[in-house]
Nucleic acid binder design. Structure first.
Length: 373
DNA sequence: TCTAATGATTCGTG
DNA sequence: CACGAATCATTAGA
């Protein structure tokens, strides 16, 4: 209290004093001779104001507001406050942008939830729809629009929530600002303090915003994973693709392990991915091996078919008087077209060639994503 | 509705 | 990483 009274004593005639003089009450007293009693009275009035009735308080408030020393007292109190409490808080004011929010923002932008209406979102939608679509066709369009519709729904919810949030934030900020401005007439609140309070409110609201962004991201992730879950959206290969694969399989029955190049060629022919070709051969080998008898008829059928194809190719070749180009899809010359005894698969591991290519071409989780490449 | 077929995934292995 | 084997999840046909 001693410091304060000294400080307040210094206020007695601030009008003609420089800032440096404020801290020296003795010099003030010397210059003006204003009694300390005056300051004590004002302080007493301020302290007692809460105990009075509303009307009395209002009248007192008015009187205090009109007091000739009010502006000086106010500015000094502001200064004291600034130097004590707020200087400590001030350090934390300029914090860097939250990396978490930045991550969420980037993701929402990439997914097309935030940002321009038909920007990256449609690209992401196309990717997801292509991934879900499996074989290219009219079906892909349905998947695409379905995905887009759901994404648009999320987008709409996100934006309406964001708008609500922004409105609430600005309403609350305005309310607090008005309140503080109003209060600043009776207690020392500097504009800087109001500014800080606004920053604090914004920080609090931004944590709510982060929650909104987080849950939106989760929703998009769930949506994507549903569309990307190839197993759920499995489509049987078309007849022509199955024929091409079977032709290769039965014409290479002694070693049904297509090379990376052969897989690529088959993938191209069947309009599927290399990894789908690998899956198909993996399934085929194991299922054939498990029940050779069941596949016998199929084996004979394709053996005949490949033999006929080979014959027509060689006939064409001889007609054109040019050598027939060896095709991986045709029957191997050393392989009999009809296998009298059940053919057996030689389970020998093929050499691991072209690992880099395979690394690029094999996509297990999202095998469909390369389907349209 | 049931069931066989089938494409995809997972796991252990070399 | 490719493969076999087991399994899952979906499709298609009876």
């Amino acid at each position: 209290m001693d410091d304060q009274t000294r400080m307040l004593a210094g206020l007695a005639g601030l009008g003609g004093l420089s800032q440096g003089d404020v801290g020296d009450p003795d010099s003030v007293r010397k210059q003006l001779g204003q009694p300390q009693q005056d300051i004590g009275d004002i302080l007493q009035q301020i302290m007692a104001i809460t105990d009075e009735s509303l009307d009395e308080a209002q009248a007192r408030k008015h009187a205090l507001n009109c007091h000739r020393m009010k502006p000086a007292l106010f500015s000094v109190l502001c200064e004291i406050k600034e130097k004590t409490v707020l200087s400590i808080r001030g350090i934390q004011d300029e914090d860097p942008p939250d990396p978490q929010i930045m991550r969420l923002d980037n993701m929402l932008l990439a997914e097309g939830v935030s940002g321009p209406e038909k920007g990256g979102g449609s690209a992401a939608a196309a990717a997801a729809a292509a991934a879900a679509g499996g074989s290219p066709g009219a079906d892909g369009g349905i998947e695409h629009s379905d995905y887009r519709a759901k994404l648009a729904q999320i987008r709409q919810i996100y934006h309406s929530e964001l708008e609500k949030y922004e409105q609430a934030c600005s309403e609350f900020t305005n309310h607090v600002m008005n309140l503080l401005r109003e209060q600043s007439r009776t207690r020392p609140i500097s504009p800087k303090e109001i500014e800080r309070m606004v920053a604090i409110i914004h920080r609090k609201f931004s944590s709510i915003q982060m929650q909104l962004k987080q849950s939106t991201c989760e929703a998009v992730m769930i949506l994507r994973s549903r569309f990307l879950d190839a197993r759920r959206k499995r489509r049987n290969f078309n007849k022509q693709a199955t024929e091409v694969l079977n032709e290769y399989f039965y014409s290479h029955l002694s070693n049904p392990y297509p090379s990376e190049e052969a897989k690529e060629e088959l993938a191209k022919k069947c309009a599927i991915t290399v990894s789908q070709v690998s899956n198909w051969f993996g399934n085929k080998r194991i299922r054939y091996k498990k029940n050779i008898g069941k596949f016998q008829e199929e084996a004979n059928l394709y053996a005949v078919k490949t033999a006929v194809d080979a014959a027509s190719v060689s006939a064409q070749a001889s007609q054109a008087n040019s050598p027939a180009t060896p095709n991986s899809g045709t029957v191997c010359p050393c392989q009999p077209p009809l296998t009298p005894t059940p053919p057996s698969i030689s389970i020998t591991l093929p050499p691991h060639t072209n690992q880099l290519r395979s690394m690029l071409l094999h996509t297990h989780c999202s095998s469909y994503t390369l389907a349209e490449v």
